[in-house]
Simulated scan of single mutants.
Amino acid sequence: MMFDVLKRIEELREERNLSVYKLAQLSEIPQSTIATWYQKGHIPPVDKIERICNTFGISLAEFFCFNTENILTDEQAALLNKWSLLSSKEREAIFYIIDTFLTKSL
């Protein structure tokens, strides 16, 4: 069975209630580019898949994994789902908070 990249993007987008327009905005990939992938059945280049993964808050490995249940705990999956809804500035703030906690615990 061949992995369907476009279907995976669609699944992740729908899980997060993102329109194609919103995905385009968040990933900074033109909506027309994403639409062309679907219209012509083109597989997006890896750099664009990586940008989409960053938008969803997942790694490339998670993107291409058929069964993420074996990779993540329920708590981790919930955290990643919430992470994907944050803006880049909100994510930076979370990293700052985590770094502060880790520095204080050393």
Rank of each mutant, 00 (worst) to 15 (best):
M1D: 01
M2N: 13
M2V: 12
M2A: 11
F3R: 07
F3G: 02
D4F: 06
D4L: 08
K7T: 06
R8C: 01
R8H: 01
R8I: 01
I9F: 00
E10Q: 10
L12G: 04
R13C: 06
R13D: 05
E14V: 12
E15F: 10
E15C: 06
R16L: 01
N17K: 15
L18K: 03
L18N: 03
S19N: 06
S19M: 06
S19D: 10
S19Y: 04
Y21P: 05
K22T: 15
L23W: 03
Q25A: 08
Q25D: 13
S27W: 01
E28I: 04
E28M: 09
I29M: 05
I29H: 01
I29G: 01
I29C: 03
S32W: 00
S32F: 00
A35E: 11
A35S: 14
W37Q: 00
W37P: 06
W37T: 00
Y38L: 00
Y38T: 00
Y38S: 00
K40L: 01
G41V: 02
H42V: 02
H42G: 02
H42P: 05
H42E: 06
H42T: 04
I43A: 04
P44Q: 03
P44Y: 06
P45R: 08
P45N: 07
P45I: 04
D47H: 12
D47R: 10
D47Q: 07
R51M: 10
I52Q: 02
I52H: 04
I52T: 04
I52N: 02
F56H: 08
G57A: 04
G57R: 08
S59A: 07
S59C: 06
L60W: 05
A61I: 11
A61H: 12
E62T: 13
E62C: 10
E62A: 14
E62W: 04
F63W: 07
F64Y: 14
F64I: 01
C65F: 02
F66Y: 14
T68M: 03
T68L: 07
E69G: 08
E69S: 13
N70A: 11
N70Y: 10
L72P: 14
L72I: 05
L72V: 08
T73K: 06
E75W: 10
Q76Y: 10
A77M: 14
A78N: 14
L79V: 08
L79Q: 06
L80V: 08
N81M: 11
N81T: 08
N81V: 03
K82Q: 13
K82A: 15
W83A: 08
W83H: 12
W83M: 13
L85E: 15
L86I: 04
S87P: 05
S87K: 12
S88N: 14
S88C: 09
S88I: 14
K89E: 13
R91Y: 02
R91V: 00
R91P: 01
R91F: 02
A93I: 06
A93M: 12
F95E: 14
Y96N: 09
Y96S: 09
Y96Q: 07
I97F: 10
I97S: 09
I98N: 04
I98H: 05
T100M: 09
F101Y: 15
F101H: 13
L102R: 12
K104Y: 14
S105H: 09
L106K: 15
L106M: 13
L106N: 15
